[in-house]
């Protein structure tokens, strides 16, 4: 039974059916099977947050999830937030506040923030920092990421 298993995963609104090995990580499924390379892979043990996606609307580490476990579920990746020509709201705030440098950590932050804006109080910097504490960034020093979230939280609107 380590034979491939057939799964259907709804990613950014489109159903994808594939035969996958049970050991395939959701992160690799997204990147290698579907070509959605916006989801980054840093540590593969749950520490860095670069691989964060939404599963049924809540943020999750795609490196700690097997693709087979996502069968039948709704996955949202950073590709759903916007395009280079038409950035989403969170992406725009990141650009406006210079909240990224190399960009490696950015997709994970964007997806984490999408969850946090929907489900968590972000009333002060302490709560914002707490919400971001599971994501590591080696470049920015976090100040500008916090500034971007502060703006987003102060004008919570629809999250594209």
């Amino acid at each position: 039974m380590t034979d491939p298993v057939s799964i259907t995963v709804h990613v950014n609104g489109t159903a994808h059916t594939r035969r996958v090995e049970p050991r395939l990580l959701l992160s690799d499924f997204l990147r290698h099977e579907l070509g959605l390379t916006g989801t980054h892979v840093g540590c593969e043990h749950g520490v860095c947050g670069a691989c964060t996606v939404l599963i049924d609307g809540r943020s999750a580490r795609s490196c700690l999830t097997l693709a087979v476990m996502a069968d039948g579920q709704d996955i949202e990746t950073v590709e759903a937030q916007g395009t280079q020509e038409d950035l989403g709201r969170i992406q725009r705030a990141f650009r406006d506040h210079h909240a990224l440098q190399c960009g490696f950590c950015t997709p994970g932050f964007l997806m984490t923030i999408a969850d946090m804006l929907r489900h968590h109080p972000l009333e002060n910097d302490e709560q914002i920092r707490e919400a971001l504490s599971g994501n590591l960034c080696r470049c920015t020093g976090y100040q500008n990421i916090v500034a971007a979230v502060r703006e987003l939280a102060s004008e919570r609107g629809p999250i594209e």
Partner: peptide
Amino acid sequence: VAHLTVRNR
């Protein structure tokens, strides 16, 4: 306990 994303699962 951990971070919000880990707490979701």
